[in-house]
Design a protein around this nucleic acid. Sequence first.
DNA 1: TAGATTGTTAATCGATTAACAATC
DNA 2: TAGATTGTTAATCGATTAACAATC
Lengths: 231, 231
Amino acid sequence: MPDRNISKSVIKRLPVYLRILDQLIRRRVDMVSSKELSAESGFTAEQIRKDLAYFGAFGTRGAGYNTVYLREKIIKIIGLDKKIETIVIGAGNLGTALTRYNSTKNPYVNVIAVFDHDSRLVGKMIDGIEIYPIDEAPKYIEQNKIRVAIIAVPAAAAQEVVDTVVRHGVKALLNFAPVKLNVPSDVHVHNADLTIELQSLIYYSSAEEERKERLKKEIKGGKSSKTFTLE
Amino acid sequence: MPDRNISKSVIKRLPVYLRILDQLIRRRVDMVSSKELSAESGFTAEQIRKDLAYFGAFGTRGAGYNTVYLREKIIKIIGLDKKIETIVIGAGNLGTALTRYNSTKNPYVNVIAVFDHDSRLVGKMIDGIEIYPIDEAPKYIEQNKIRVAIIAVPAAAAQEVVDTVVRHGVKALLNFAPVKLNVPSDVHVHNADLTIELQSLIYYSSAEEERKERLKKEIKGGKSSKTFTLE
DNA sequence: TAGATTGTTAATCGATTAACAATC
DNA sequence: TAGATTGTTAATCGATTAACAATC
């Protein structure tokens, strides 16, 4: 797997391709072109070809990509070929919903334990997944070689929790707490701050903005509000 | 408010600045430098100054930014100065959690109604917010001039729901459904696909990757894993 | 062979970083 | 005045887009 410094943007698009391939395979589609992947993903065909080319030549000129083969390749690139197990820290509303959501929607990653500070929650189950006391997280992480954790604790508690899990081997974090987390340089954090997402949307929702946006787009080349669909 | 084509990346950073300012004001801090904002946000001081300068000259040379004044300015820029009301479509696990989460964590945006297809959920309350039948969404959106909606329905239902809400005036969408939504060019979509976030993290969690990442960073100038804190 | 579509190199675009004059 | 920090312009970097030769 050749692999220099692939950018974050490329890596974030890979799971999108994977999802589309899963759908195509379910529909028994054999081959797919970058143009068709573009229609389904919203990314340009050139970008898709370039993204894939970072990792190898997976397509057939004149024909496109074999869906099953490309899917396998992407799974290997991301690292989803081994069983991936993760934990959720925080069994509040969000932690509970994320745990449930993941178990139905994510075929590649399993939440195998939830941790919480609140002793009243400990021992309860979320979709068959047990809630453990937060103190047991270090041992659990080490024994189960957990590398990825989902942080769904209040902002004030997040840094301490993260320091702990990182100390015991976690290398990547999906952070829902509204704080900047400080981590060693070999640990990756993806922030999924819902408040910030929602607030920045407001900017685009006002009437004046619409006009300006439309104007900008029209000047740029007048792409009429086209929709992307598989042709 | 001068305002050409400010990039999405800039707009996404504004709520981060806002959150930090809120914290500083709560701590009765009067002035803040771009360097201090950098420490709290993780963005560079240059970038912060540049971001703010797109909208005006809010600082004082030699002294920094007045927290209260800058907060007010950012609120105006984003459009959070008017009361912002939004709706959640989908009262499943995720929709429910998002509704609850927002009411405690987001001081600037209110979820005022939830909609669901399932008649067994209709009439129930989530933190004092009522669940309505999805058919009532069009009327509700128009009467309450809703411009922003949060989509938390299954992938298969998302496009239809979005078509409907957009037809009745929604201009910005926070989409949790794992599908590419097709919308007119004057409507904005932020995708918050948790599955994709989590999957792309896996790439960064493997042992080989760590080595490469470390290597890359060391070559680039050996920033030791420093932590950012307010000095 | 003709048509289609990849893989890759070159050109463009945009965003970040660096530098520094302005000025409190 | 000296020190600090902004606002802004210029330089750099990186990512996207365009173009096209390779080839099925």
